[in-house]
């Protein structure tokens, strides 16, 4: 009985997912682009035979060769290896940041939306306060007071980003909690916990997915920008923004030092923006989260 219901519920969803991809060229391009990057990042140790940190001053600023597919930088390090390892850094950090953000934001949203009243009012006050502080500025403050480091940068991004998720989930919960099926579940004796995670949370999945897709791009841009400024990843760590900063003095003689990492950032962000656009179209959400840069 139960299995039959599950089957009946799940099949259209699967079917739908299949339809999405073919109906959304943008989504498809975005996912393929991302897939290529993932492959590159994961197979880094196979393709990138060189140590991304190995300095070899004899081999500096070499043009592309079999040994160094994209040449070497001003310290004789393999650019390709550094890019690959930078992909792992950037994507890894972003994934970590977003995971943390969701772990904080989603339960907060559930709590505030469901509890309402004073907790919610307090939450909204806090949000008003934090929203006045753009994450970029907060990151500058944190870096300024606690010292520039990747950890501090991640901390400041998390401090701002969780709000978005809390707000989205809160909105969904507030809209859904008075609906009949929730009342029915409550009358049926469902515990609050189950109500929240089994009934209310699934309603928030699509808006959260879209928000997250756009946020990946934004977080990557923030982290690389601040790393470029020297407030994030510190040299010699192969982070894309830091690499750009590193190569800046040589950019007249060796423009490729800035070309590759920048292009990498742009393509990855582009992939996620395409995915976000595609998902939003597929999930038929309003243009509420249209890419606001920054």
């Amino acid at each position: 009985m139960n299995a039959a219901i599950k089957k009946a519920v799940l099949r259209p969803a699967r079917n739908g997912r299949y339809v999405w991809l073919s109906a959304n060229p943008l989504l498809l391009i975005g996912i393929s682009l991302l897939f290529v990057f993932m492959l590159l990042a994961l197979s880094g140790w196979l393709l990138a035979a060189n140590d991304p940190l190995a300095v070899n001053m004899a081999e500096r600023l070499k043009s592309p060769s079999l040994e160094y597919p994209l040449g070497t930088d001003h310290m004789g390090r393999c650019i390709f290896s550094r890019l690959i390892s930078g992909a792992r850094t950037t994507l890894g950090i972003t994934a970590m940041v977003l995971m943390t953000v969701m772990v904080i934001g989603i339960p907060m949203g559930l709590l505030c939306g469901y509890a309402g009243g004073r907790i919610d009012a307090l939450f909204m006050r806090l949000v008003d306060g934090l929203l006045a502080l753009p994450e970029f500025i907060l990151a500058i403050a944190v870096a300024g007071f606690l010292g520039p480091s990747l950890m501090n940068l991640m901390l400041s991004v998390v401090l701002v980003k969780w709000i978005g998720y809390a707000r989205v989930v809160r909105g969904v919960v507030m809209a859904e909690r008075e609906k009949e099926y929730i009342l029915a579940a409550r009358v049926g004796g469902a515990r609050t916990f189950k109500l929240l995670f089994r009934h209310l949370l699934p309603q928030a999945v699509s808006p959260v997915m879209v928000l997250a897709a756009f946020d990946v791009g934004k977080v990557i841009l923030t982290i690389s920008s601040l790393s470029y400024l020297g407030l994030g990843a510190q040299p010699p760590a192969p982070e894309w923004g830091a690499m750009l900063n590193d190569g800046r003095p040589y950019f007249q003689t060796a423009p490729e030092l800035m070309l590759y990492p920048g292009a990498a950032i742009m393509l990855v962000v582009l992939a996620f923006n395409l995915i976000g656009d595609g998902l939003r179209n597929v999930l038929d959400l309003k243009e509420r989260w249209r890419g606001n840069p920054g």
């Binding site: 750009l244 007249q252 800035m258 742009m266 393509l267 923006n273």
Partner: peptide, 23 residues
Amino acid sequence: LALIGASVPGFWLGLLLIYGFSY
């Protein structure tokens, strides 16, 4: 343009502009 604008890192765009128009 909207897609590129939302994806291009500002500092990189600046560097490209400097390289192209200034250098």
